[in-house]
Amino acid sequence: MSVQNGPAIEIAGLTKTFGRAKALDGLDLSVRTGEVHGFLGPNGSGKTTTIRILLGLLRSDAGTVRMLGGDPWRDAVALHRRLAYVPGDVNLWPNISGGEVIDLLGRMRGGLDRARRDELLERFDLDPRKKARTYSKGNRQKVALIAALASDAELLLLDEPTSGLDPLMEAEFQRCVHRLKAEGRTVLLSSHILAEVEALCDRVSIIRLGRTVESGTLSQLRHLTRTSISVETARPLAGIDALAGVHDLVVDDHHARFDVDTAELDEVVRALAPLGVRSLTSTPPTLEEMFLRHYGDEAAAEAEAAVR
């Protein structure tokens, strides 16, 4: 496994249109070597399109894309030897068994670890003799996951790999990703399951309408968003609504609840201190709240567009 200092994936200003529809509109994404990177966004925001461009299945219209030091379109075959992919919607050949598909994909990548394959079959509780026709969505996804996880790929591109798995298998998946991370491999994980992203990812990119809206570590992202504050003071609360960065204020004499832009937190706490703070709880935003804020904006923008 080659250890590189440069980023595993570097995308800048990526644009892709299908006919009139703009799937990607200047997307930026940077995934460092050895990290697990969460790729978040509502349905149709362009996650799958981005991954397909990284796989050289689609050609970008504008922008630069580098992956593992190569051009995903031009160097597709050479790069594919070093990556493994799990599609979001796994379609298999009805008459071929799961075990055969795992072996086929592994051999076509350039070999897979037999012992690991068998161990993964056990862990994910998959019967390799069943024909793909009889597999449920979750089992088809397991086939693709096992094929990817049993490889020695440096980079794994996982497109909502757990959307059909039950909680037990989800936990098994998380253990596998931790192991990948310990081995120094890079993972791009597109997901809807925010608890999974919080548990696994070093850094996160949130995209919306084909554009990156947030990117960074979870604590960096939190800094950009609001913290919920609940405070009780000795003296009556006054003038809080005048402070910069305070939102959704509910106040009655000695008690207040509000959200504050995390960047303004320091100023707000200074303003509260002279009032004699009796109790104060501050709750950092969950990823879910951050996500919903962006998603909510989009929903609102769409509703607006519909009215117009």
């Binding site: 594919h80 990556l83 599609p87 379609n91 076509m108």
Partner: peptide
């Protein structure tokens, strides 16, 4: 969509 995972290998 069955060609997709194949073309994501070294094919």
């Amino acid at each position: 969509g069955r060609a997709e995972p194949l073309l994501a290998t070294a094919t």
